[in-house]
C-alpha cells in the first residue's frame, strides 16, 4: 500500500517589521510622563569630583610609566659606575696627562673624582667639571632639561637642541667601556 507522506505546512512567521506607528501626541505624552525632577547637585558633584580624581591619578600613573625606563637606565648606569673596579677613568675618552698622573699619584679619588683643588680637565660630558663623566652629569643635565634651564655646553650631540638625547649621550659616555688604544678597564 502506498502511503502518501503528509504535507508539511511551514509555520507562519509574523512580520514584526510592520510596527504600528506611534503618534507624535502619544509619544510626547509618554515622554512627559517620564519627565522627572532634576538631579541633586550633591550627586552631580560627587560624580564629577570622582572623575577628576581618577583622571589625576591616571595622569600620575602615566608620568610614572614614562619615567620608569629612564629611572631604570639611570639606576643601571649608577650600579655600573659604583661597581666598576678601576683607578682610571670610566670614560671612553682619553684624560689629559695631568689628570692621568693625578690618578696615579692618588691626588684623584678612585673613580676619577678629584680629591683636591686640581685643575679640572675639560672632558666631553663632564658637565659639572669634576674631572669625571658619570651619572651625576647625566642626572644634572636631565634635571636642567626637565626645568628647561640649560647651560652653554649642554648640547652634547650638537644638534642645536638641548633635550633628552643629550642626556642619553652623557649617560652613554658615563657607562661606556674604554676600548681604545692605551686604555683598559
Amino acid at each position: 500500500m502506498n502511503r502518501t507522506p503528509p504535507t508539511r505546512i511551514p509555520p507562519t512567521v509574523p512580520n514584526f517589521d510592520d510596527i504600528p506607528p506611534v503618534s507624535d501626541d502619544v509619544a510626547q505624552r509618554l515622554r512627559a510622563l517620564h519627565a522627572r525632577a532634576p538631579i541633586p547637585a550633591h550627586v552631580q558633584d560627587a560624580i564629577l569630583t570622582h572623575a577628576r580624581r581618577i583622571a589625576a591619578r591616571r595622569a600620575f600613573q602615566r608620568r610614572i610609566l614614562l619615567a620608569a625606563p629612564l629611572a631604570a637606565a639611570a639606576g643601571l648606569a649608577l650600579a655600573v659606575w659604583v661597581a666598576w673596579p678601576s683607578n682610571t677613568s670610566r670614560l671612553g675618552v682619553q684624560h689629559p696627562p695631568a689628570f692621568a698622573s693625578g690618578l696615579e699619584s692618588g691626588e684623584f679619588e678612585k673613580g676619577g673624582r678629584t680629591a683636591g683643588a686640581l685643575p679640572h680637565a675639560v672632558v666631553p660630558g663632564d658637565l659639572n667639571r669634576d674631572g669625571s663623566v658619570d651619572m651625576r652629569d647625566a642626572l644634572a643635565l636631565a634635571q636642567r632639561v626637565q626645568r628647561s634651564v640649560v647651560q652653554p655646553g649642554d648640547d652634547q650631540n650638537a644638534d642645536g637642541v638641548v633635550d633628552s638625547r643629550d642626556v642619553d649621550v652623557v649617560a652613554m659616555l658615563a657607562v661606556s667601556i674604554r676600548t681604545g688604544k692605551g686604555g683598559g678597564a
Binding site: 502619544v26 510626547q28 505624552r29 509618554l30 512627559a32 510622563l33 517620564h34 519627565a35 522627572r36 525632577a37
Partner: peptide
Amino acid sequence: LDRAGPAVADVQPVDTDDLRHRL
C-alpha cells in the same frame, strides 16, 4: 507612575491617566 506625582502632573495634566493605564 502614580508616585511620579507633581512632576508628571505639572508637565502634562491632560489625558495622562489613560496613557498610564495602557502602559
